[in-house]
């Protein structure tokens, strides 16, 4: 008995040493070919299993085929994404550490209470991927026929109408704050996300619900909710019959979650170029677009330059709405 155990132990130790060595050898051998020649880490600053995470994992799988190297998703959670982005900022800008990027990054450093020491210059923008547009919906028996009627009522009764937003400083909340600045005061009720917003709306606990167009499309199709407006410059393909907010009221009110990919600041231009092409190819693949559509998400490609300009504009818009 004792002999067997010691034999097993020796074998295990041997195994460990062998695995250790082989890893080491593998690394050395591949050091001098072109990018990418080793596994890429994709930081997802949110918990495994959420919709952001699943979207990123779908992309990671395709990126692997495109680049011929493993893409390892690493969930680094904390401080509404900030812990993950900090980890990214500390990584080498060699293109082997990338991260999922959301507009929450901008909100986070704009908020003076947070005392963040990074901004848009601390990351290299690669591409925009997901475009998740917000829609406002009401119960079918709501007195508001469209966004114009709603705004008229809000103007006459400031602070009376409740709107379910999926949390503080989400795009849903920021849109309500932007309207506030224009003199239309609504009362935001912060839910902890999609599920609760939906429950509150269906149960009639709030007057209006602000949700992703792709998330609310089924309830609208089935007549459980009625969509008032889409908060974008053009109609959403998930709700083709629903007018934009501007169409209806003349006020340009936009709210969307845009999710893209970034690397650490001053990334190697060759790697940026390579990733841009790879991402572009993935996003133009109709199969990928269909996958994302099934999840209720639109794909909108922006290259590195366009993405950067878009984020700068977003920073200015948020500053205005939030008053920071």
């Amino acid at each position: 008995m004792r002999k067997t155990i010691s034999l097993v132990l020796v074998l295990l130790m041997l195994g460990v040493i062998l695995v250790g060595c082989s890893n080491f050898a593998g690394k050395k051998q591949a050091a001098d070919s072109t990018y990418p020649n080793k596994p890429i880490t994709l930081i997802v600053p949110y918990s495994a299993g959420g919709s952001s995470d699943i979207g990123a994992r779908l992309v990671a799988k395709r990126l692997e085929q495109e680049l011929g190297q493993p893409v390892v998703v690493e969930n680094v959670v904390g401080a509404a994404g900030w812990v993950g982005w900090q980890k990214l900022a500390k990584a080498k800008p060699d293109g082997y550490t990338l991260s999922l990027f959301t507009l929450a990054y901008i909100t986070s450093y704009l908020n003076p209470d947070n005392k963040r020491d990074m901004n848009l210059d601390n990351v290299t923008q690669l591409v925009n991927h997901v475009w998740d547009v917000t829609a406002w919906a009401v119960k079918p028996d709501s007195p508001f026929k469209d966004a114009r009627e709603l705004l008229a009522y809000v103007k006459a009764n400031p602070g009376k109408v409740t709107v379910a937003t999926s949390g503080v400083y989400t795009q849903h909340h920021i849109a309500v704050l932007a309207l506030d600045k224009l003199g239309y005061k609504m009362k935001p009720v912060h839910t902890n996300g999609l599920a609760e917003s939906l429950t509150m709306a269906l149960g009639g606990h709030v007057d209006v619900v602000s949700m992703g167009a792709g998330d609310v499309r089924n309830q609208v199709k089935e007549g459980a909710l009625r969509a008032l407006a889409v908060l974008d410059t053009k109609r959403s393909r998930f709700l083709p019959d629903v007018p934009t907010f501007a169409e209806n009221t003349g006020i340009n009110l936009n709210a969307y979650a845009a999710r893209g990919y970034v690397g650490p600041a001053n990334m190697d231009p060759a790697a940026v170029k390579r990733l841009e092409t790879a991402f572009k190819k993935i996003m133009e693949d109709p199969q990928h677009v269909a996958e994302m559509e099934a999840m209720g998400l639109d794909v909108r490609y922006m290259d590195s330059k366009a993405y950067k300009a878009f984020l700068k504009q977003e920073e200015a818009d948020q500053k205005k709405a939030l008053g920071w």
Binding site: A195, N218, M295
Partner: peptide, 27 residues
């Protein structure tokens, strides 16, 4: 019946439904 996930792990099931082209809800 309503398409409402009542916990984070059910929310993932919802994600799986949707990803495979099914939409939980009354219909």
């Amino acid at each position: 019946t309503l398409g409402i996930p009542s916990s984070p792990s059910i929310a993932i099931l919802l994600g799986a439904f949707i990803m495979h082209g099914l939409t939980p809800g009354p219909t």
